[in-house]
Amino acid sequence: MSAKRSSQDQLRLPLTRDVPTSASAFVRSGSNAFAFDALSAWPNDTGRVMALCGPAGCGKSHLAALWAERVGAVPLNGSEAALADPLELEGRPVLLDIAQDADDETLFHLINLAQQDGGALLMVSRPSPRRWQVAVPDLRSRLDAVRVLAMEAPDDAVLSAILAARFAERSITPADGVIDYLVLRIDRSAAAAADVVERLDAEHRPVTRALARQVLGASADLFEEPPEGLQP
């Protein structure tokens, strides 16, 4: 992003994108409560720049979308942020997803813009900004000072909600106990939940624990409880 870029060369990005329809269904739990509560009260006197970080599938982008919808933030994405017109970002909150992919100049300008009245910057990435590779010393010091809101992999409550939502999207009503069964046996990520629901749907049969066990195959056997009276 450069303020010196001519108006003829400046590419203008749309300043509004649809917030995912699932944003209102975000589940607050132990794995995300700290970040959820901080963003619910922000921007405030705690600073104008924050970073939302955590592993893949933990719900970072979902929570960030909820924040963006509330404050009317301009959504930008990774390296595409360099194409945004700085004049259109002045005095406005900005959401930068995949923030570690933005170039040094863009990050530096966005952090500066966030200090203006009405400005704020939420950067979303897997690693903390302290681990990003940057070449500009002033940018390094600014990133090291950013307040980081860490999220963890989905816990049981979040993973159950994700599975229920994926089943509902496909108009599937799983049998009692299926979701609890899956929560204990799949990777703790939104992607894993979506994948197993897709595989179950592809069977075109009622979704029961027996079907879930069949679809999961050997991975399910690792978690099977031993017969009654036997020790694991």
Results as ranks from 00 to 15, higher is better:
residue 165 A to Y: 07
residue 221 D to W: 10
residue 174 P to D: 03
residue 199 R to K: 08
residue 185 R to K: 00
residue 178 V to Q: 02
residue 160 S to E: 10
residue 188 R to M: 05
residue 202 A to I: 04
residue 221 D to C: 11
residue 224 E to T: 13
residue 178 V to Y: 03
residue 184 L to T: 15
residue 191 A to E: 13
residue 171 S to D: 15
residue 215 V to E: 02
residue 187 D to M: 04
residue 171 S to R: 12
residue 183 V to Q: 01
residue 220 A to H: 01
residue 222 L to Q: 13
residue 223 F to K: 15
residue 161 A to D: 05
residue 192 A to N: 05
residue 202 A to L: 12
residue 183 V to H: 01
residue 159 L to Y: 01
residue 171 S to M: 11
residue 227 P to G: 10
residue 225 E to V: 15
residue 183 V to Y: 02
residue 225 E to N: 15
residue 197 V to T: 01
residue 196 V to L: 07
residue 196 V to G: 00
residue 197 V to Y: 00
residue 197 V to I: 01
residue 204 H to D: 14
residue 159 L to P: 00
residue 191 A to K: 08
residue 222 L to N: 11
residue 207 V to W: 03
residue 177 G to N: 07
residue 232 P to V: 07
residue 205 R to V: 06
residue 179 I to W: 03
residue 222 L to W: 11
residue 189 S to I: 04
residue 225 E to W: 15
residue 230 L to D: 14
residue 170 R to Y: 08
residue 167 F to D: 03
residue 198 E to A: 14
residue 183 V to S: 02
residue 206 P to C: 01
residue 179 I to L: 04
residue 217 G to S: 05
residue 193 A to D: 04
residue 162 I to V: 14
residue 180 D to N: 08
residue 202 A to W: 03
residue 213 R to P: 10
residue 220 A to I: 03
residue 160 S to D: 10
residue 184 L to R: 15
residue 175 A to L: 07
residue 174 P to V: 02
residue 212 A to Q: 07
residue 175 A to I: 07
residue 181 Y to Q: 09
residue 226 P to I: 07
residue 183 V to G: 02
residue 179 I to Q: 02
residue 218 A to M: 10
residue 212 A to I: 05
residue 216 L to H: 07
residue 203 E to K: 13
residue 207 V to S: 01
residue 164 A to S: 13
residue 210 A to M: 08
residue 212 A to P: 07
residue 205 R to D: 08
residue 205 R to L: 09
residue 173 T to D: 13
residue 188 R to S: 05
residue 211 L to D: 06
residue 221 D to S: 13
residue 166 R to G: 08
residue 206 P to R: 06
residue 215 V to I: 06
residue 217 G to K: 06
residue 232 P to E: 10
residue 172 I to V: 09
residue 178 V to K: 02
residue 232 P to I: 06
residue 193 A to P: 06
residue 202 A to F: 05
residue 167 F to G: 04
residue 223 F to L: 15
residue 198 E to D: 14
residue 212 A to V: 05
residue 179 I to T: 12
residue 197 V to N: 02
residue 219 S to L: 13
residue 231 Q to W: 14
residue 207 V to T: 03
residue 213 R to Y: 09
residue 199 R to S: 04
residue 176 D to H: 10
residue 210 A to R: 12
residue 160 S to R: 12
residue 196 V to M: 06
residue 219 S to E: 14
